[in-house]
Design a protein around this nucleic acid. Structure first.
Lengths: 123, 123
DNA sequence: AAAAATACGCAAATCATTTGCGAGTACATT
DNA sequence: AATGTACTCGCAAATGATTTGCGTATTTTT
């Protein structure tokens, strides 16, 4: 079924994708409806197979729910997202937990700025 | 004009507000239209007087564009947002800048979990 | 006070995402 | 194979936060 194909697209993508991007990709091979893509994505997120992150542009991005935690550097100029695995947030999370009693289970982090490529072109 | 009243609401709020919350607040005193609130907010954001942050719930939250950097602990149970000023991200940002050349200008960080209050009630 | 610029209300538009419904398909049980 | 039950999908309409066009008021500038 189409769920597998949609999941494959996510699995094979090095970066996170929007529902529309997934839809376009899948549509090249088979017929699907956008709502099917959304339904499937929600399904995969529920099953913890896929992670959904809403960015400042208000669009949801989906990626493989992998163990290794990633964050994005989003260029305000070209709007590309570069991922980084640098994240010392667990330390901060522990500190917050200790000082506030808040039981933190997850976090999202988004950096904004200008990527090296754009920096070159702007100058 | 209404811009001042809207700005006052934001100034006097200890936490970030949605457009609707601001609208409700302002409406208690004067007549305004929701679109006026939105227009004014965009205006204030443009002038760097107000900061807009889109959260995972896809709703934009507005707060005074203040110098002191805050992040939110959002309870997945009661949906309240607790703010914290703990943020060692500048260190991480510098590291990323050095290693990737990405010129980071801002970031958003959102912690999710269960707040102490809800923890008590759930148990 | 007239002209030019803003502010505002109202209704309609937008856009990502969701949902109701009805039809198609798969799988299990007899 | 036949029946039942549960998904899977497509399609069109609905949602909900936010934006926009437009005409009218109100302010600011001259």
């Amino acid at each position: 079924m189409k769920k597998d194909i949609i999941f494959d697209v996510i699995k094979n993508s090095p970066n996170s994708l929007t529902a529309e991007e997934i839809y376009n990709d899948v549509s090249q091979n088979i017929n699907v409806n956008l709502s099917t893509v959304y339904r499937t994505l929600n399904n995969l997120v529920e099953k913890d197979l896929v992670t959904k992150v809403v960015r400042q542009d208000k669009i949801a991005y989906y990626e493989l729910a992998n163990n290794e935690h990633k964050h994005y550097l989003i260029c305000d100029n070209c709007n590309n997202a570069y991922s980084t695995d640098m994240c010392d947030l667990d330390k901060i999370a522990r500190k917050i937990k200790k000082e506030t009693g808040f039981n933190i289970t997850s976090h999202t982090l988004e950096f904004h700025g200008i990527c090296p490529e754009c920096l070159k072109n702007v100058k």
